[in-house]
């Protein structure tokens, strides 16, 4: 198949950028989207042009490194699919494809399609953990966790930290990312001691990083390659409200 690509090119963090048109010819429908970009890059290199920079690593949808806005949809048209797992059979021959980086103040562009998502790490630093230094833990089976709880916790823990939620959000809010971690840890008995302190500090950090506000469009849930539910946001808000009333104490 033959495609026309419109790709955001930007030489560096402070350089101006623009959309540039490329032709991608002889693309196999069995290629992944990133393999299609590989082919384009091979050609650009051969022609003496600078290849397109984009983040990627595992190429099996779990590391969260890749993430492109494809035709205005975070991670492209397939639901529950990261960019690396998107295959070209999802596009029709002759299609025009717009490829842009994640856009948010908290995700500054580094080059072309690669952005800096360290803001998400800092949200985790604010409290996205259970304080349990190595050693000194009790026998794993001494903590009973109902299967339903652990299954729900796992649904949220599946977050790969790709940032698609914030990229897709019309308000550039990272609520789904933050809420997924708050929900994962908040559903487990081990997470209870820090539950309310965690909600306060992670929510606070999210604002400091310059993310916008959740207005519950639901775009994040649709964009999430792990299909994490916006129910987690309800839970985050509940924990935050309760924490604000109790001052973080139970």
């Amino acid at each position: 198949m033959n495609l026309t690509l419109h790709v955001w090119r930007q030489a560096g963090p402070d350089a101006p950028g623009k959309m540039v048109r490329y032709e991608a010819n002889d693309i196999s429908p069995d290629m992944s989207f990133l393999e299609m970009l590989d082919v384009v890059n091979e050609r650009l290199t051969a022609e003496g042009e600078t290849p397109i920079a984009f983040d990627h690593d595992c190429r099996e949808g779990i590391c969260g490194a890749c993430g492109l806005m494809i035709n205005g949809i975070a991670h492209g048209p397939e639901k529950g699919t990261a960019t690396c797992q998107l295959h070209m059979r999802s596009f029709s021959d002759g299609a025009a494809i717009y490829i842009e980086p994640w856009r948010a103040r908290a995700f500054p562009v580094i080059r072309d399609l690669a952005v800096d998502r360290s803001s998400l790490d800092r949200i985790i630093q604010a409290g996205g953990f259970i304080t349990a230094a190595t050693g000194g833990s009790q026998d794993a089976n001494a903590i009973l966790v109902p299967k339903e709880n652990v299954d729900d916790a796992m649904d949220s823990a599946a977050c790969i930290g790709c940032g698609a939620c914030a990229a897709a959000c019309p308000n550039a809010s990272a609520s789904l990312f933050t809420a997924a971690k708050i929900t994962h840890l908040g559903l487990l008995p081990q997470g209870q001691p820090e539950r309310y302190r965690r909600a306060l500090s992670m929510v606070g950090r999210m604002d400091l990083e310059g993310f916008g506000s959740c207005t519950l469009h639901g775009e994040c849930q649709e964009a999430c390659p792990k299909e994490i539910s916006i129910d987690t946001i309800t839970r985050m808000n509940r924990d935050f409200l309760r924490a604000s009333v109790t001052g973080g104490r139970e």
Binding site: A132, A140, N141, I143, L185
Partner: peptide, 22 residues
């Protein structure tokens, strides 16, 4: 043996049985 204890303490959501055991 210690690894599993440590990971559970950190909140790793290992699969469980209905009774709550791993």
């Amino acid at each position: 043996v210690n690894i599993i204890d440590q990971c559970v303490a950190q909140g790793v959501p290992f699969a469980r049985e209905y009774g709550g055991l791993l």
